[in-house]
Design a protein around this nucleic acid. Sequence first.
DNA 1: ATTATTTTTTAGATTTATCTAAAATTTGGC
DNA 2: GCCAAATTTTAGATAAATCTAAAAAATAAT
Lengths: 220, 220
Amino acid sequence: MRVFSRIEENYIKGIYKLQQDMKIVTTNALAALLNTAAASVTDMLKKLRTKKIIEYKKYYGFNLNELGKREALRIIRRHRLWEYFLVEKLGMEWNKVHEVAEELEHVSSPELIKRLDEFLEYPTTDPHGDPIPAESGEITLRKQVALPNFPLKKNGMVSAVGNQSDDMLRMLDHYNINIGAQIKVLRHFGFDGSMEIKLLKQPAFNISHQIAQNIFVYDK
Amino acid sequence: MRVFSRIEENYIKGIYKLQQDMKIVTTNALAALLNTAAASVTDMLKKLRTKKIIEYKKYYGFNLNELGKREALRIIRRHRLWEYFLVEKLGMEWNKVHEVAEELEHVSSPELIKRLDEFLEYPTTDPHGDPIPAESGEITLRKQVALPNFPLKKNGMVSAVGNQSDDMLRMLDHYNINIGAQIKVLRHFGFDGSMEIKLLKQPAFNISHQIAQNIFVYDK
DNA sequence: ATTATTTTTTAGATTTATCTAAAATTTGGC
DNA sequence: GCCAAATTTTAGATAAATCTAAAAAATAAT
């Protein structure tokens, strides 16, 4: 049958996400991400270890090995293809599709995903600007940078948002900061780290450092 | 959260299916359909009874009450909309979509289903010819009849197939007996119950009683 | 460097869905 | 109408995923 249960898949996805910036993932970090008790994480780690998809040293930390990463990318591929479908074909709002995709991603028929990809005409990024892994597992990481680190007065394109909480997405929507939007940083204010930014055809306005850190852009 | 687990949903769907021709469903019948032990069915019945969606009399039988039927129709609606999508949009073969739809049907976002329906332009029957229940729960049961009971030399339209085993579907495909096909019965052979049938633009040919019983048609 | 704090793991319980085997009930044969 | 057979339910166990509380290990603080 199915190689990984949907619960195992959620753990795999979580580990993948965390190990992108932590390299070695800790039990508590994963527990917080998955909203579960640390003890539950430990239990699952043992299981994933016997399935040979993680490296795990007790009391130290863990991460996905090559097999694990490939599996994570398969899940992420499904998730992002569905997100693309939900927005581009069904017309759902890009800040509301995550939850639904979270369910659809576990439907694991390879033929389904292959045909969906074809139907969508092989998209390369999802509605949040995140790259869609190829069937082979390859993922093209365009070099993107958080807004505070982006050069002044240079045109950039919003590529992704770091924090996908509802509050955050609603606020971005309010300011018309959408994926693909052209954006420019006009000034930094050292005092509070806030900054003045400008979008095409809109007056400049100010955003806090906290928000700026969650907006990623690449060169336009 | 979610009102019914996906396992409960499968039981609900199973009961609905059986009670169409049995009215009162028995434990063994459901166990056979779901490929599970009779004891497991009994356990689940108790649970569904506390959730107030079935009538259940010990040792006698059970069926869905109004609430249960509505829930069943919601699940079937999702299943058939997805089947339609898989065939019409993704180009999958109609005899291969059942399994995948079996998974997709449990994704329960109402907005998703509403928009999917809209995207598909409100289809009324799935690729097997079965009617898709409306959002309200209404289902139009066109009066369909098994081929052996269909009048001689009258034009009918293939509306559904009773047995959706792979073997059956492959054979139907071989003979071009597709949903929607125009069909006519030329002769009955009393000896073995086989019959001669004819499809549009094809020479007449003979099918066994067993197969004929699994082909449903309605007046054209 | 020893103690205090935090993190992680273990131990033991719980919930959901399942099973087998035995007991209870109903149905069918004669 | 009673006995045998079939069906259904109960009892008790198991597996997956979770939890809380206590123990073990690692990290930080004085």
